[in-house]
Write a protein that binds this DNA or RNA. Structure first.
Lengths: 153, 153
DNA sequence: CTGCATATTGAGAATGGTATTCAATATCAC
DNA sequence: GTGATATTGAATACCATTCTCAATATGCAG
């Protein structure tokens, strides 16, 4: 049987002398099930449906906790809101962000990573982390734009 | 004679029906002379030395204005503060950011840009802009760290 | 050069996301 | 179960950014 996210969390918590509360378990479950980039606010709204008593601060703090536990990644794109991404087993990846509809696509490119290391070495720089984001229009928003142009709106 | 930043600004302003005020001219001059990434706060402190009456809101608004006029670039790194960079003639570039001392190095890599386009095409994505930041330790901070480890502090 | 319409300024206050405080409560080792 | 202590939820603090508004500066028309 595979290790569940909840096991991972429980382990981390007991290792740190922290407690596995009802709220933390619920938040993790809902966060993992959502399977997309969520802000604290968005997750809070989801959590409230199932567990109405849960406070915003708890959701907020739990997201930080999950990040420390390695179960989530913090992402700050250009709109000033911090989003969290559930970290399944998949590797590091970067993002394509549609400025039209806000959609977020993921990608991975080994060659780019290698070139980054190359750049770092040239500057005697030791890379701890990186972020690469491409902002633009997804295929859907490109068609919409073409249509608008054609119709002259 | 080369076109000066102030000319560029004046042109932009009159084109938009805006006014070339004392404050805007002073802010641009000081910003251009600083030649590094500055937050609104930092620039405000610099401007106050020469032109004490100038308000923070004006510095802030002028930085937005310079960005629209193409004389500045807005950068948001991971510390939550927006920084502005004077746009001289040099091309687009990306950043190495030292998590030890906050130092910012710049780099440019054509191959990475090409690979980004390749990734975009594969996803039928039309890139409008991108950001690539490498976070880590500059050579100075690496030595400091080694020293600390050696001394066991 | 003068007057006028209007863009701009500066101070302060509003905003909005993030982070903390604190008394009440839940957790868990014993 | 009991007690020490981590956690919760509500409210509040924080802080960069943005807006408001009355006073002022700008620049065009005449």
């Amino acid at each position: 049987m595979q290790k569940q996210p909840s096991d991972h969390l429980t382990e981390y918590l007991s290792g740190q002398g922290l407690k596995a509360t009802r709220q933390r378990q619920a938040i993790l479950r809902i966060f993992a099930a959502a399977g997309r980039h969520l802000s604290a606010e968005e997750l809070y709204l989801l959590v409230k449906k199932t567990a109405p008593g849960t406070g915003f601060a708890t959701v907020y703090r739990t997201l930080k906790l999950l990040t420390e536990a390695g179960l989530a990644d913090e992402r700050r794109f250009d709109d000033g809101v911090t989003r969290y991404e559930y970290r399944a087993s998949h590797d590091h990846h970067d993002h394509l962000i549609c400025t039209g509809c806000g959609r977020i696509l993921e990608f991975e490119n080994k060659q780019i990573e290698e070139l980054q290391q190359h750049v770092a070495r040239k500057n005697r720089f030791l890379v701890q982390s990186h972020r690469l984001e491409l902002y633009g229009l997804c295929s859907g928003c490109q068609s919409k734009k073409r249509k608008r142009v054609k119709e002259g709106t």
